[in-house]
């Protein structure tokens, strides 16, 4: 399940459209600026405007609605809890009163305003992240981060993680299937079946880790055979897509 949504986002970045053609640095700077403004400005107007703009953009490049809703729903559920918390515990003018278990709790206007602000901010920032993630491949983002003086070693590890996550995922799933065929994950909800599943999953984790360790050794060998000198990514980044510019130039 997670892999599908993972691949879905990654595959969407491979499409050719207005926003995937845009320089990753521009997108990153715009997104960060928007997030800062979002936190700095009280009220819901900016947030809702941003949501509208992003939704229009996502619609324009035909991002599946299911993905958009799925992404926004999870943090929104938590957001509603925060909203209720603020509504009833914030000082201010009561706008209505509830009788719960013999006591009165009042919802306040101030609480309502703050609560809706937070809900709007959550929706706006999740949409923004989603927009960034469906239009910017991880490697372009990595180079944009290096350009913006983000610590290079973190980007290097991030790009290696991104690359090898797909390899390890395939290996892990093969092990999992082999375990399933040998009753590693029995059906049912009893404590014994659960114990067996947990044992299988820890074995799977250990095996994936061992594979990763061995692969690190052979990858290092392969890097050495191409005169590796400690730099995993080459120099500065300029968009591949801009004519005549290459990522190592």
């Amino acid at each position: 399940m997670i892999k599908e949504s993972y691949f879905a986002v990654d595959a969407l970045t491979q499409r050719d459209n207005l926003f995937t053609r845009m320089d990753a640095r521009v997108k990153v700077i715009l997104s960060i600026t928007a997030l800062i403004v979002l936190l700095a400005i009280p009220g819901v107007k900016f947030a809702l405007g941003l949501v509208g703009l992003i939704m229009a953009a996502l619609f324009l490049i035909r991002i599946p609605l299911k993905l958009v809703i799925g992404r926004i729903a999870v943090p929104l559920i938590f957001g509603i809890f925060v909203f209720l918390l603020l509504l009833f515990f914030q000082n201010g003018h009561p706008i209505f009163t509830l009788h719960v278990l013999g006591s009165n709790i009042a919802g306040t206007r101030e609480g309502f305003i703050l609560g809706t602000t937070i809900l709007a901010r959550i929706t706006a920032s999740v949409s923004l992240l989603l927009f960034l993630s469906v239009t910017t491949p991880v490697h372009e983002l990595g180079h944009a981060l290096i350009y913006l003086r983000f610590p290079k070693v973190i980007v290097e590890i991030m790009l290696l993680t991104y690359r090898y996550l797909f390899v390890l995922w395939d290996e892990g799933m093969r092990i999992r299937q082999a375990q399933t065929l040998r009753m590693g994950y029995p059906d049912g909800r009893g404590i014994r079946t659960w114990k067996r599943s947990v044992k299988s999953i820890s074995t799977l984790m250990a095996m994936v880790f061992i594979r990763a360790y061995d692969r690190a050794e052979s990858t290092f060998d392969a890097m050495q055979a191409r005169a590796y000198n400690g730099n995993v990514t080459g120099g500065h980044y300029k968009s591949w897509k801009t004519k005549g510019m290459q990522p190592w130039s």
């Binding site: 070693v153 290097e156 790009l159 947990v198 994936v208 690190a216 290092f220």
Partner: peptide
């Protein structure tokens, strides 16, 4: 240690993969 970066990349990928694995919770399913 020149191998440290590729090693961290792979360990990081493995830990990230592990953190995505669903672990069954007993009884609730």
């Amino acid at each position: 240690i020149l191998m440290f970066k590729p090693l961290l990349g792979l360990v990081s990928a493995a830990v990230f993969f592990i953190s995505l694995l669903p672990i069954p919770v007993p009884i609730t399913g």
